[in-house]
Design a protein around this nucleic acid. Structure first.
Lengths: 72, 72
DNA sequence: ACATTATGTATAGTTTATTTTACATGTTGT
DNA sequence: ACAACATGTAAAATAAACTATACATAATGT
């Protein structure tokens, strides 16, 4: 829906995880590399299901990977 | 994306919150009642942004409202 | 008996997420 | 200099989320 309300730590987490590449993350999450690029760059935010899968790849709770930036 | 991988506690939470109605939740979350109905019934799962907004209405962390059911 | 409210269902239309394909760039190793 | 790899960008196509409208039903109160 929105544009920039949601931020994420994907890039940081990739490097803290065996220097995981975009393609590797895409494979483990079951999506295309383009999807990872778009989310990582903030072009759009993922579906809830994909957000859960990405968080699960990193073994982190969802809210440590994705943050909702309150714009009051 | 998926169909039934994600479950939620919306219905329970509505009743634990002042008997909040679907319409009231929809208004507070900034969506249509149809969207709440569809999510509550599991027709589809919300976007990550909407999931955050709904959780915020109930004052709960996202993962207390939505659960990812591991299908291994 | 009637009006009101909350919910469920359905369908068509719009917007956003995701895929597919393709090309460009900088880096690394040989 | 060349190949291989990681990343960024872009555009067209498909799928999924979301809106708008409308109708049906059961429950509640007057």
């Amino acid at each position: 829906m929105g544009k920039d309300a949601i931020s994420n730590q994907i890039r940081n987490l990739r490097f803290h995880h065996n220097e995981m590449t975009q393609q590797q993350l895409a494979d483990k999450a079951g999506v295309t590399r383009q999807t990872i690029v778009a989310i990582e760059k903030g072009n759009y935010s993922p579906s809830l299901e994909l957000a859960f899968r990405i968080a699960r790849v990193f073994g982190k709770p969802l809210e440590e990977v994705f943050q909702y930036d309150d714009k009051q």
